[in-house]
């Protein structure tokens, strides 16, 4: 019984939160890695693209709620998602036309594009706050739990409760669907293949008649879609606050780099690796340890390796360790 309790506690406090956090990081890192693979620079504005997109989703959600449109047991934000994606895609395409295209024509070095993307980041940062404010916003509605802790305790007779929030379930499910669709798209469709071709060998792609502007536009649209989905899922799961999305840029980049920049599979693996280590290192293991170990060995303290304040340090420690042994990341991305 103690052993079962330990497993439930582990699921409840580590596996489920880390999986949904990992799915959010993976979706964010996919966007970063696609931009890197095709446009060949690290897009620092990605976190704020997520924030902007989520803000749009929240506004549309409020509009829906005010006229009484709801999505049954699911969050209304899911209905608003396509609108948020459309607005954000329009914004990033406009940014590309107004800013990045100029530097592409100049054949600017990647490092210049990185700095340019930081400029874009600060502008988006300001625009988002201007539109929706700096405070914390909760916009989840619909059913709260798939598995409720108290009902779980009653049904199983275990001392530990298992809570599986609907936003967590939704995050994982959506991530699976989106990733499957993305991989189908990249591997099976002509557009996806031309993106891979362009990423693989730009010169040859151009001389095979692939239109670079179209590849770039499609990449931005997909990256915007991924950013808005990741941002909305993160906001539903926790809450929306513009600054949090700016901070999220760090673990997202860590995920993309650990997996190998430019490699979609790597972004997913990196996302989960970072999420599980982050949660694993900052979780207080006392409860699980007390169940599993004999009484004499039960820890007195919290058995927490690091305070949650250090969670970003964990991402970067993983980053350094992986790059020491595999300089191009786990899945052989492009050299950074």
């Amino acid at each position: 019984m103690d052993f079962l309790n330990a497993i439930v506690a582990l699921l409840n406090f580590v596996v489920i939160p880390a999986t949904s956090y990992g799915a959010q990081l993976a979706l964010g890192a996919l966007g970063v890695t696609l931009i890197y693979g095709i446009l060949r620079f690290s897009n620092f504005a990605h976190g704020d693209t997520m924030a902007f997109g989520t803000a749009m989703v929240i506004l549309v959600t409020w509009a829906f709620q005010s006229v009484g449109i709801h999505f049954g047991p699911l969050p209304t934000a899911l209905l608003a998602l396509p609108f948020g994606i459309a607005i954000t895609a329009a914004l990033v395409l406009a940014t590309d036309k107004a800013v990045y295209r100029f530097y592409r024509r100049q054949k600017a070095a990647p490092v210049i594009l990185v700095i340019v993307s930081m400029g874009v980041m600060f502008i988006m940062n300001g625009v988002t706050r201007f539109i929706i404010g700096v405070g914390e916003i909760r916009f989840d509605d619909g059913g709260r739990f798939i598995v409720n802790a108290n009902e779980f305790k009653k049904a199983t007779g275990l001392a530990e409760g298992l809570a599986f929030r609907s936003t967590q379930g939704l995050t994982i499910l959506t991530a699976i669907i989106v990733v499957a669709a993305l991989f189908w798209f990249l591997n099976k469709t002509r557009t996806g293949k031309s993106m891979r071709a362009y990423s693989d060998n730009e010169d040859l792609a151009l001389l095979s008649g692939i239109n670079p502007e179209r590849v770039v536009a499609v990449t931005w649209i997909i990256a915007a879609g991924l950013a808005v989905i990741a941002g909305t899922l993160y906001g539903l799961d926790k809450s929306f606050k513009a600054f949090n999305y700016f901070q999220l840029l760090l673990p997202i980049f860590a995920s993309a780099i650990v997996g190998g920049l430019g490699s979609p599979l790597g972004a997913i693996a990196g996302g989960f690796l970072i999420a599980f280590t982050e949660v694993g290192f900052t979780y207080a293991w006392k409860k699980v340890a007390t169940y599993v170990l004999p009484d004499a060995l039960a820890p007195d303290g919290l058995a927490q390796l690091l305070s949650t304040d250090y969670k970003f340090a964990v991402s970067f420690a993983i980053l350094v360790i992986v790059l020491l042994f595999k300089p191009t990341g786990l899945f052989k991305g492009k050299a950074v």
Binding site: F185, T189, R190, T191, G192, K193, S194, A197, A205, S208, G209, I210, N211, R214, V218, I221
Partner: peptide, 14 residues
């Protein structure tokens, strides 16, 4: 990959 202007080149058609 080579022949350009294939149907599958637009997101919509895909």
């Amino acid at each position: 990959m080579v022949p350009a202007g294939q149907l599958g080149e637009t997101l919509w058609n895909t």
